[in-house]
Structure formats: C-alpha cells, structure tokens
C-alpha cells in the first residue's frame, strides 16, 4: 500500500493541463510510473494528487517532419529501439533506450519521464544532449520550447513547473554523412544504473574529415556534460587510432577536473577513457587498430 492520494486519468492533453492548473499541490504527473511508484512506496513522495497521462496516445508518436525528428514524451523506451528513424547515425537513441533497465522497465518507462526525472545517470540524456535536442513544454496558458541542456539544471533536476507537461522532444535529423553511438558502463549488463555513459555525434565533411564532433558524458556530474577539449581535437581531423589516443587522454583529464576529490573520481577518470574509446570506435571503425576490427 502506498501513501494516499487522489488520482486522475484525463482523456486529453488539454484536459490534463486544465487539471494540473487547478489541482492543489503537492501534485505529481504519472507517465510510465517506473520511478514514481517505487518512490511512493519508499515514502519519498507524498503527493495529494496524481495525474496520469499514460493513456494519451497523442503523446506517443515518433515522426520525422521538416528535417526534425519528433518523439512524443510518452514513447516507451522499447518503442525507441526499433523504428527506422533510429538507424544509422541516429542509432544512439535506440542504443541508449535499449539499455535502460530491463525489458519490463523499457515497456513501461517513457522518454519524457527519463528527461523530467533528470537523474545524473539518466540514459537518454547524453544522446539527446549530443543531438542538440529541445523539449516542448505545455501549460494551460501556452507552451515553450527549450534546449534540453538548458532544461536540465546545473545543480541537477529539471526546470519544470508543477503545472507544466513535457510533451515532446525533438532534434534536427543528422545529415547523411554523420555517425553516432552510445555506450553505457554499468556494474552488470541489465538493470544497471550507468556508472558512466557516453554519446557521440560526428558529422563529416565531403572529404571524410570530421566537421563537427559532439561528445556528451553521463554520470560524471549532475547533468550530461559535453567535452569541448575532446571535440576540438576531433574537429577537422580524419578518424584514426592515434587521434583517438589523444582524445581519450583529454576526456580523462576533463573528467578528472570535473569530479575533483569525489570518492568515485579515481575510478571514473580512468574508466571514462575506456568508455570514450568504445563510443568513438563504435561510431567510426576508423578509430580502431586494424587488429581490433577483426577481433
């Protein structure tokens, strides 16, 4: 048995927004429930009102429009694993979604929930940050769109009002000559919290050189961090094993500075090198030594 609360199941987004605007605090929005329900059980939350939006199918759509990929906030992680729009360079979205929790969690949990919970280890965040995603938020009175990297607070958490609903996340589709990947390091291979995660997006010029590289790391701070020093090293270069060594070293240094004297620092600043190596090699095999490709 969980703490007592009133429960509402609005039939449309509009109805949900109206309800949210009128209900007294404390109130909570229920999407998938995979984080909310255990928190209620552990007595960490005592909402008076819970508004469930899980049934709003209008918020589950995944589509491509005018060069944008739009993902409804209620799309379950397992819905993100297969669609063709997450093949190729965009596969980092599918790779991240496919490694969240276990299959049951992926069937229930939503991308919107993952974003709003804004856990430092939230697996969808690094890929979305690397893709330059924006989130669209609605309230009864109107809506706003904001870059995900700004939506996530520097000290953790998400900048969302109790009356707001995150309805959609979107990012510009990558050009044809681009690559992307995601790597997660957990203590075990499923139902594991990321100890470190990394997402990369690489855009090439017509000569196969890196025109732009983005590398976002998870679980090394309150929110995903980009690594400008590593990105700068990659820019204008052709992917090669020697270049990778430089990049990996710079990622290690950057994370060492970020984590400072935290107890996990000595492990993470070393391990992040391996994660950075894997994510770049996975995105572009030219980062591998010839032996590794066959092995």
């Amino acid at each position: 048995m969980l703490p007592s609360f009133n429960y509402y199941q609005p039939a449309s987004l509009q109805e949900a927004l109206t309800l949210l605007a009128s209900l007294p605090r404390p109130k909570k929005l229920l999407a998938g429930g995979t984080d909310l329900v255990p928190a209620l059980r552990r007595g960490e939350l005592y909402p008076a009102n819970v508004v469930s939006i899980s049934g709003l199918s209008e918020m589950k759509e995944i589509k491509m429009e005018r060069g944008l990929i739009l993902i409804g906030a209620l799309a379950a992680f397992s819905d993100l694993v297969c669609p063709p729009c997450f093949e190729g360079a965009h596969r980092l979205v599918a790779e991240a979604a496919g490694q969240i929790g276990g299959p049951q969690i992926r069937n229930q949990g939503t991308i919107g929930g993952n974003i709003v919970n804004a856990s430092p280890a939230g697996d969808m965040l690094p890929p979305l940050v690397a893709l330059g995603a924006r989130v669209r938020l609605c309230r009864e009175a109107g809506e706003r769109a904001v870059f995900l990297s700004d939506f996530l607070g520097d000290a953790g958490g998400a900048c969302i009002a109790p009356e707001e609903i995150l309805v959609e996340v979107s990012f510009p589709a990558l050009p044809v000559n681009a690559a992307g990947s995601f790597v997660k390091l957990g203590r075990r291979n499923s139902l594991a919290i990321s100890r470190i995660s990394a997402a990369t997006v690489i855009i090439y010029d017509s000569y196969g050189r890196i025109e732009e590289a983005r590398l976002a790391l998870g679980s090394v701070g309150p929110k995903p961090v980009r690594v400008p020093s590593a990105e700068a090293l990659l820019k204008g270069q052709k992917p090669a094993p020697d270049l990778l060594e430089e990049v990996v070293a710079s990622v290690g240094e950057a994370v060492g500075v970020l984590l400072g004297s935290r107890s996990s620092a000595s492990y993470k600043k070393a391990a992040v090198r391996g994660v950075a190596r894997q994510v770049l090699q996975k995105a572009d095999p030219r980062f591998m030594n010839s032996g590794e490709i066959n092995g």
């Binding site: 229920l30 429930g33 329900v37 255990p38 899980s54 397992s78 929790g101 229930q108 139902l191």
Partner: peptide
Amino acid sequence: GEGECGACTVLINGRPVNACLVLAPE
C-alpha cells in the same frame, strides 16, 4: 516491490511489465 526482480511480470497488452510498478487505476 521495485521492479528489480521481474517475479511479478504480467503481460499488459502483450508486453511484459512489472505489476509492482503499475498503479491499480492504470
């Protein structure tokens, strides 16, 4: 009771889900 073991797995609309993480009204 927190979605970590799968012993309460049921199928909802054909998909496996942990019944301990689903509120009854859902």
